[in-house]
Write a protein that binds this DNA or RNA. Structure first.
Lengths: 211, 211, 211, 211
DNA sequence: CATGAATGAGAGTTCATTCAT
DNA sequence: GATGAATGAACTCTCATTCAT
């Protein structure tokens, strides 16, 4: 592109370049936050700890984020992107609705089973009635991306012949089932009953897909 | 001995009185803790806050509990007692297994739906792999009381003709379903799908009870 | 004794009996304090810890001692008694002044080398210019017993022909030498120089006893 | 690069200035700590007290030191520097070994006689077997500086014709003698014997220097 | 004599955030 | 944009001591 290749003088180009650099550094901070969460969980992911891992002083992060909660929010955003990516990749090439259903649900479940801290993050930010520290816009975006991640399940159910109203109800119930299994699995409560969350989910999906 | 029994068991009586008073004050502290949890959640229920609400100096609480976690543990213990009471009362007089199943599950669900902080408490104390400040004995007790609260469901399923192995798996799955619905309801996530957790649970139970 | 065997009624006898019992319990507390000191040092020998080891509640100790410092003072008193006992036993039967000198000094040194906490105790109580929490009477007693413990050294030096003024100066210098070796040994500082406190003391005593 | 050097090394200068200011404030804190020690001793020199005297909030000190023990360590480090300075200044220009011996030992002794809290500090930080909150590096440095302060004594003894092994033993013994005199002088124990620590040290040195 | 409870002060440490430079 | 410093509040917990019972 001409504009960007004309050397430097353009205020426009400079602005764009700066934004790109800034975005990269934002990513760097989020990466540090992700590692902090994975290593030490919510309580350990203090702003200081994140800054330390990112190679910054605490104050510097306020150039990129308005507050600690905002970092958490951005991190949750990225997490949801990865979730959608995982679900999308899982159903790629799956033609049969039954298979799509299984693959989509499995991808969703496995994503959180293998990254339990990202589930914590969502719970933390939506603790109590209203989200904490998130702008309404970000909140809406996050909600939409969550719905997106479950949409393939709903579509598959419709393709399996379920009426739309029933499909959305069944999707919601499956969502609840998965969240419940994840939480109980994560806290070790499920061992109380000598059960395996993975097997229980498989049973649930079998029942869901059968006519 | 004659002397001590003729003197009216005064030392005995005093000891009994003191224990009762002490127990009442312990309750008072737990009540304050419960309120602190309800008002401000886990993060807000600091030792200072609990002491303030109970009308005590922070240090005074250490006459009754060994640590903050011990208060949490006691609180969870009481919560589980109330849960068991609620479930027990609900199935009182219910003869038909199907009705017992519905009533027991409903009581469990409603208990946490109406006291969401007590669900948080349980999650907090069993965060990560190992419980935090709880003695192994208390931990075992808490686990047992949780199983107790779900036992009526399991029994009803057996009475409905399910083989034992299937009954316990179904109970666990129901547990997960309820926890999922509670968490999603509590964080408002379920509104995303335009669903009502209560209705979804009813559907789940209907399916579970049908042959 | 008649008085004490005539059953109970006498107020005198009762007073005496009570004092004996009280003294025994005082001893019990001091024993607990000694153990606490030996196990955990000055910082760990809190009033609570001492009470716990003695099988009492903290408040109960105030029936026997006016303050924590008073317990420390009494403990130091007992320590000095044992010190005098050790020194006395060491010189028993020693005729030659030179041998008495060696034995007395060695007993003194070994006592504190093997019970370093009791040296700490003395330093603690006389930290700063004036003793803390000790009555002047107790302070005078403790000082006198300390002098007593070193008196055999002084006597031996006189018996070796030293003029009195020189004997007391030499005793004081030996005292300082022993304290210095004990402190440096206890804190490991003496290892810096690759020396052994015991050997250094032996050299010092040899020089002292030679004409 | 031309640009950065023509612009006067402003970033460099700034960095240098900031480091100097920071160092000065560190000194200010250490000065406050020193005063707190002098006024109230080890027990009274709490982090809060030090911060108060320095005009800081308690938390602010953590910008300069990692822990309370680290402040103590730095303070001891400075103390040992001053000690070395005092000893070094004292032997400046002293040619005769005998005079060097006297001057070096006197300087060492007088330093601690006039600043008894700094002796306490050293004892505190090397309490028990292992140093408390000090890094091994700092510990090694402190040990080395202590040896340095006594090295002139050892050298003078060698210059007086003592074999090396005897010189180090004699230095250690002198060290112990001085520490003993200081401790006994500081706690007033030496008055018990009607002696003056300064005179006793003079006697000791005379004996040490004589053939 | 002894208890159990309570006080009030204080311990060291961590936190998110702000702001001059 | 980034630092380094600082705030101010909060954290859990421990202490010696007191006192009604």
């Amino acid at each position: 592109m001409v504009t960007s290749s004309t050397r430097g003088g353009s205020a426009d180009a400079r602005r764009r370049r700066e934004r790109a650099v800034s975005g990269a550094r934002r990513e760097l901070i989020l990466e540090a936050a992700r590692e902090a969460f994975a290593d030490k969980g919510l309580a350990g992911a203090s702003l200081r700890e994140i800054a330390r891992r990112a190679g910054y002083t605490p104050g510097a992060l306020y150039s990129y984020f308005d507050s600690k909660e905002a970092i958490y929010g951005a991190l949750l955003g990225e997490s949801l992107e990865r979730l959608n990516g995982a679900v999308g990749a899982a159903i790629e090439g799956a033609v049969a609705p039954r298979e799509r259903l299984h693959r989509a649900a499995d991808a969703f479940y496995v994503f959180y089973r293998d990254h339990p801290r990202e589930l914590d993050l969502g719970f933390y930010l939506f603790n109590g009635v209203r989200p904490m520290g998130l702008t309404p816009e970000l909140n809406a975006t996050l909600n939409a991306r969550l719905r997106d991640a479950l949409a393939p399940v709903e579509v598959a159910l419709v393709d399996l012949g379920r009426p739309p109203a029933q499909a959305v109800a069944a999707t919601t119930a499956l969502f609840a089932q998965m969240v419940g299994l994840l939480v109980l699995g994560h806290t070790g409560r499920i061992r109380l009953f000598g059960q395996q969350p993975d097997a229980l989910l498989a049973d649930y999906l079998d029942a869901l897909a059968s006519p």
